[in-house]
């Protein structure tokens, strides 16, 4: 048997090392991404036969049901509306958070403290934080309203009229910090010489923000907005943390609808949910590309 040379041994060792390091993630990717998604796509064309105990070909019937339900089930309309509101508000918050990030970036009064406070929700788990928020809005605020203003008030999460607003507020309060951290980190990468040159040219802080900082972080902002479009139909708005599977239809988002449906579904329901997922993906993909194209066209450029 031919003896391996030192170079060959090194090559084999390197290959073995590479496989041991990359093998598991690749395997995981193949099973849990390619396999699961492929199975999900195929499932959309099947139905479960309880007697035979297997999925059988069902043609396009699941898609027919999905399109019919989009037209007839009012809560799906409400879910689309809430998902779009969620995205719309996220754009507003993104704009506001860039202002705020600029404030922190410029190290103005209490900027560091604000950064710390904003990061707090991320130290505590989302579920615990939503519980704290729920108790605060349902117990503490009514308590103060009663004792300070002698006004009987229902909890903001319990009251169907304020529920959506309260959950939206929570979502953006907790999401705001992520954006601020992201934008302020992106801003800190701006070369000091660029800023100094601007100051020497006599730009005001407002002009510095609009004509120097925003163009320099525009790609980060774009990424955030495009990813937001791609996740319009999967964003849950923390509804599961607040309500479990019992959220009212009035606050549904599409992400919550799908998650809840999958959690409660029987084997017969998975094909319908797969078809719904495919339809929504078919909508989200062109929307995301369109958003990316539009933002690339309309946005400011660093040069």
């Amino acid at each position: 048997m031919k003896k391996l040379t030192g170079r060959q041994k090194t090559k084999i060792k390197s290959a073995a090392f590479y496989v041991s390091l990359v093998g598991l993630p690749v395997l995981q990717f193949c099973i849990f991404y390619i396999g699961v998604n492929l199975n999900s796509i195929l499932l959309a064309f099947k139905a479960y036969d309880m007697g035979a105990g297997e999925y059988v070909f069902y043609g396009l019937n699941n898609f027919t049901k999905v399109f019919r339900d989009f037209g007839t089930l009012a809560y799906l309309g409400s879910a689309i509306k809430n998902s779009l509101i969620l995205y719309g508000v996220s754009i507003l918050v993104a704009l506001f958070s860039t202002f705020f990030s600029f404030y922190i970036y410029k190290k103005r009064l209490l900027g560091g403290l604000f950064r710390f406070i904003l990061f707090l929700p991320h130290i505590v788990s989302a579920l615990v934080f939503s519980l704290i928020f729920m108790y605060f809005t349902d117990e503490v605020i009514p308590f103060f309203a009663d004792n300070l203003f002698h006004t009987a008030m229902e909890g903001l999460i319990s009251n169907p009229k304020t529920q959506l607003g309260a959950v939206l507020f929570f979502t953006f309060w907790t999401g705001f910090s992520t954006q601020v951290l992201m934008f302020s980190s992106s801003m800190s990468g701006i070369s000091d010489s660029v800023i100094e040159a601007g100051i020497m040219d006599g730009v005001t802080p407002l002009k510095e923000f609009f004509y120097i900082v925003v163009p320099m972080v525009w790609s980060t902002l774009c990424t955030f907005l495009v990813v937001g479009v791609a996740t319009i139909f999967t964003a849950q708005m923390n509804l599961f943390s607040f309500f479990g599977t019992s959220a009212e239809y009035g606050v549904y988002t599409f992400g919550y609808y799908l998650y809840r449906a999958a959690k409660l579904a029987g084997v017969s329901d998975y094909p319908y949910l797969s078809a719904t997922g495919l339809v929504l993906t078919a909508v989200a993909i062109p929307l995301s590309f369109l958003a990316r194209f539009a933002l690339g066209k309309v946005g400011p450029h660093a040069d």
Partner: peptide, 19 residues
């Protein structure tokens, strides 16, 4: 269809769904 046919109390009233 056991899951879908469980005793239902959900409703739709004037185009508004209630769980």
């Amino acid at each position: 269809e056991e899951v879908a046919l469980k005793l239902a109390w959900s409703s739709v009233i004037r185009n508004q769904n209630y769980l």
